[in-house]
């Protein structure tokens, strides 16, 4: 009696013909779902302090006060361009860390757009932002 020789599983060839098709489909998926986004912003280590406890220190420290629609630098009303120049004139980059602090005191109704712009100006002028919070 003749037996048929069993075909070993190892002999079965893996179909490779469609591999490149699958690969190209995956590429198309990645191309379509990828959105190239370059993140921009600024990094800052924010020390915070209570407004009432800081009054004596704030007398010496440059302070930016934000109100809805405007900014004050050391109690003088300034535009953002003027603020850039005033911060630049402080030459904070040449000072030690403790002397680079610029206090930021914002009113309740100040929006994040203005807050963000002023924070970026202070960071760009090599300042360390100190946020004043209300008790």
């Amino acid at each position: 009696m003749a037996f048929k020789a069993r075909k070993s599983k190892k002999d079965v060839p893996i179909p490779l013909d469609s591999f490149s098709d699958i690969a190209f489909l995956l590429i198309i998926f990645f191309i379509l779902t990828t959105s190239i986004e370059k993140l921009v912003g600024f990094s800052t280590e924010l020390p915070t302090g209570k407004a009432t406890a800081q009054k004596q220190e704030t007398a010496k420290t440059p302070t930016v006060v934000l109100k809805a629609g405007g900014a004050l630098f050391n109690d003088q009303s300034v535009t953002l361009d003027q603020l850039t120049h005033r911060l630049g004139a402080l030459e904070l980059g040449e000072k030690e860390d403790a002397e680079r602090v610029v206090l930021l005191d914002a009113g309740k109704d100040v929006d994040y757009q203005l807050y963000f712009e002023v924070m970026s100006l202070i960071t760009d002028a090599n300042g360390v932002i100190g946020i004043l919070t209300e008790e």
């Binding site: 600024f42 020390p47 109704d109 946020i131």
Partner: peptide, 26 residues
Amino acid sequence: KTLVKTQFEPVLEAIVGAGGIVVAVG
């Protein structure tokens, strides 16, 4: 960008309070 201080500042304080460095994205 339209949020007001009372909405975003507690979040900034929480990050700083936890020991983080804020990297603001814009």
